[in-house]
Computed example of a mutant assay.
Amino acid sequence: MNYVNDSTTDIWTTEDTSAYDQDDYEGIFDSGICDKSWVRDFRGYYEPPLYWIIFVIGALGNLLVVWIYTTVRNRLKTMTDVYLLNLTIADLLFLGTLPFWATDVTSGWVFGPVTCRGVRAVYKINFFASMLLLTCISVDRYIAIVRVTQAHNFKSRRMFYSKLACLCVWVLSCLLSLPEMIFADVKKPQNSLSSCSMVYPSDDQNLTKVLVFCLQISVGFCFPLLVMVVCYSVIIRTLLQARNFEKHKALRVIFAVVAAFVLSQLPYNGHLVMEAAQANNATMRKCDELKAFDVAGQVVKSLAYTHCCLNPILYVFVGVRFRKDLLHLWHCLASGSKDKVKTVPKRPSVMSDTDTTPALSL
C-alpha cells in the first residue's frame, strides 16, 4: 500500500503516479517532474523566524493575561472571564507547538512519531478550542447586551453554564483532533529531511483528506463566523438604538473583533477549500501554478497563526478593567510592593454584564 503525506517539505514520488498529491511530493505533470525545491527553500527562510516571533509575542501577551487573573483577581466573576481564561490557555498551548514546527522546517522532524502525533493533536485541539471559545464569547456578549433582564435574573446559573460550555468545547475539540491522532506520522523521503505529516492510506486518500478539510473549514471557520455575524449584528442594532454617547467606541471594537477574525482566517480557509478541491479533482497541473499555490498556503497559514497574538488585545486589553489592572500591577511592581498587587478596588469586569460601554470600549 502506498501512502502520501500533506507536507510541502516532503517532495517525493510513488510508483503509482496517478495517486499524487500536489502539496506533498513531486508529481508528474504536463512536461515532466515538478521540482519544488524553491518552495522548500522559501519555507525554510520564511517560516522559522516568523514562528518564533509569533511565539514570543503571543506568549508574552497571553502569560500577562494569566498573571492578571492569578495575581490581581481572586476569582472568575463573569462568564466572559471564564471564556477568556480558557481562550488564553488554548492560545498558549497552540503557541507551544510552534517551536516544534520551526525546528521541523530547518532540521526535519527529530522528535519521533509519538511526539509527532501529540504535537499535531495539541495543535488541532487548541485550534478548534480557540475558534469555539470565540463563538461562546460572541453568544455571551449577545446575552449580556441584548438580553439584559434575562442575563441579570440568571447570573449565577450562567456561570455554571459557562463552565459547562468550556468543558464541552474541550471535549469536542479533542474529538475533532482524532484524524491527527490516527493519521499523523513521520515520513523520511529519499534525499530529503523527515517531517511530521498527515499520512493517508492510498486507497481512499483523496476522500479522507477532503473530509478532514471540510471538518476544519466548517467547524473552525464557517460556524464561528456565522455565530459572530449574527450575534454582533444584533448587538450593533441594540447599541445604535441606545442613547449612549460612547456607543460609537463600542461599535469600533466590534468591527475590530470581526475584522481581525475574518482577515486572519478567511484567506487560510479559502486556501483550504482550494486544496480540498485539488485533492478531489486536480485542476492545477502546471508546475508554476502548484509552486505559487504552495507558497500562498504558507503565507496565509502564518497569517492565521497571528490571531493568537491578537486575542489578548482584542478580547482582553480593550476592556476597561484590564487596562486599570495593568496600570495597578505596573505601579505595584515599580514601587516594589507585592502585597498591594492583590488589593484591587472592585470595578466592572472586562466585559461587564451590567455595563455595556466599558465592556467594549477602546
Rank of each mutant, 00 (worst) to 15 (best):
N2F: 14
N5W: 01
T8K: 08
T9W: 06
T9L: 14
I11C: 09
T14H: 13
E15S: 15
D16T: 12
Y20F: 14
S31R: 13
G32A: 09
G32C: 12
D35L: 05
P48H: 07
P49Y: 12
L50G: 00
I53M: 11
F55Y: 09
G58C: 08
L64Y: 12
L64E: 02
V72L: 10
T78N: 06
L84S: 02
L87C: 10
D91C: 13
F94M: 14
T97L: 05
T97Q: 05
L98G: 05
D104E: 15
V110G: 05
G112R: 09
V114M: 11
T115H: 07
C116L: 05
R117G: 04
F127Y: 10
F128L: 08
L133G: 00
L134F: 05
L134Y: 05
T149P: 03
R157F: 12
K163M: 13
A165N: 06
L167A: 15
S177P: 07
I182C: 07
V186S: 03
K188C: 12
P189L: 11
V199S: 01
P201M: 12
S218I: 14
V219H: 03
L226Q: 08
V227W: 02
V253Y: 00
I254A: 04
A259C: 14
H271N: 08
V273H: 01
Q278D: 11
A282Y: 02
T283K: 13
S302C: 12
S302A: 14
T306A: 10
H307N: 10
P312R: 04
L314Y: 02
V316E: 02
L327E: 14
V341C: 04
K342G: 14
V350C: 08
M351G: 01
D353Y: 05
P358M: 10
A359Y: 02
